[in-house]
Amino acid sequence: MQPSRTVSRRDALRYAAAASALAGLSAAAAGVGAPSASAAAPPTLIDFAMRQIPAGDIRAAGHSGVINYVSMSRPGSSFGAKPITLPYAQSLTAAGLVIVSNYQYGKPGGTAPSDFLRGYAGGVADARTAWQLHTAAGGGRSAPIFFSVDDDIDRDTWNRVALQWFRGINSVIGVQRTGIYGGIRPCQWATADGVIGRSGSPGRVWAWQTRSWSGGQIHPAAVLYQRVVSTASNPGPVVGGLEVDVNDVLAQDCGQWNMHP
C-alpha cells in the first residue's frame, strides 16, 4: 500500500470538472437524489468480491455505482459477486446505479496465477469468457471490460508477457472494448502501446488505475482511480456489511454500461 495522497488544488479542480460533467454519473443519479459531489469528493464507484451488496445499501452510502467482475471465482473459492448476474445488474440499474465491467480470475499467490502470465492464447481465452459473462448479465455491447494486472510488474515483464496477453484480448473483443486495471506504469504502457481503447471523454483512455504501485501519481488519461484499497491491515469502508474498495471517477465516460448500449 502507498501512503495516503493529499489532494492538490489541481486534482481538486479536475475532480470538480468530472463531478460537474457526471452530475451523478448518469441521468439516474439526478432522478433518484444521489448526494452531490464536491471538489474534494468526486463521484465514486465501489468494487468488491465476497458477495452482492444490495443496491439500496450502495446508494445509502453515497456511491454512484459499482465495478463488478465478469470472471469466475478461483479454484477453492466462492466469491458471491463473481460473476455479476443479470438479476443483480437489473437491481443496480433500477436503483439508478451504474456498472463497469472488470475481469480478474487469478492473482499473485492465489490458487490460479495472475491472468497476464497466460500470454496471447490466455488473452484470447480470457476475453471470450469475459465477453460471454458481460453480455449474459446485460452489459453494453460497446462497453469496455477492464482486464487486471494486479501486480507490480516491470517493463520487461510487460513487453514479454502482459502485452501479448492484451493483444490476445484485442483479437477477440477489439482494442476499443479493452481496458486495463493496474498501477500507473502498466496504465502508461498500455496507452503507449495502443492496446486499450479511448473514452468518449476527451483525452481519456480505458485505464483504471490503482493507488498501489503508483507512488502517489495519477495517470492524466485514467478514467478511474482506486483511491481506497481494502486490506486486512487497512480495511476499506463498510457498505452493506462488507469492506469495499473505493474508486474516484475521473471522467464523464468511465466505461459504464448505460453509456455504451
Rank of each mutant, 00 (worst) to 15 (best):
M72W: 13
V70G: 02
A137K: 02
T111Y: 03
G140E: 01
I84M: 13
N68C: 05
I53P: 10
A61P: 08
A130P: 06
A37K: 10
P43T: 10
L45A: 01
S64M: 13
A37V: 10
W131N: 11
G33Y: 05
A121L: 12
P87H: 02
G62K: 14
G80Q: 04
R128E: 09
G62A: 13
T135G: 00
A19M: 05
D115A: 06
S91V: 00
V124A: 06
I145F: 02
Y103A: 05
A95W: 09
A137G: 07
K107T: 10
A39Y: 11
Q90D: 13
L86S: 08
Y69F: 14
F48I: 06
A29M: 11
P75I: 08
S114Q: 14
P87T: 08
A27N: 14
S91L: 04
A12R: 14
R59L: 14
A137M: 02
R118T: 11
G96H: 13
D126I: 05
V70N: 01
S77H: 09
A41Q: 13
R14S: 08
A81M: 12
S78K: 03
G33T: 09
T85P: 03
S78C: 07
K82V: 03
L133E: 03
A60T: 12
S20D: 15
F116L: 06
A125M: 08
H134C: 01
Q132R: 12
L92T: 12
G140N: 04
G96F: 11
R118I: 00
D11L: 14
T44D: 05
S78W: 03
R118D: 14
A34L: 15
D47H: 06
A121V: 10
R59D: 05
H134A: 03
R9T: 12
S77Y: 12
A21D: 07
I99C: 01
L86W: 00
A21F: 04
F79L: 09
G65L: 03
L117A: 14
A12Y: 01
G139M: 09
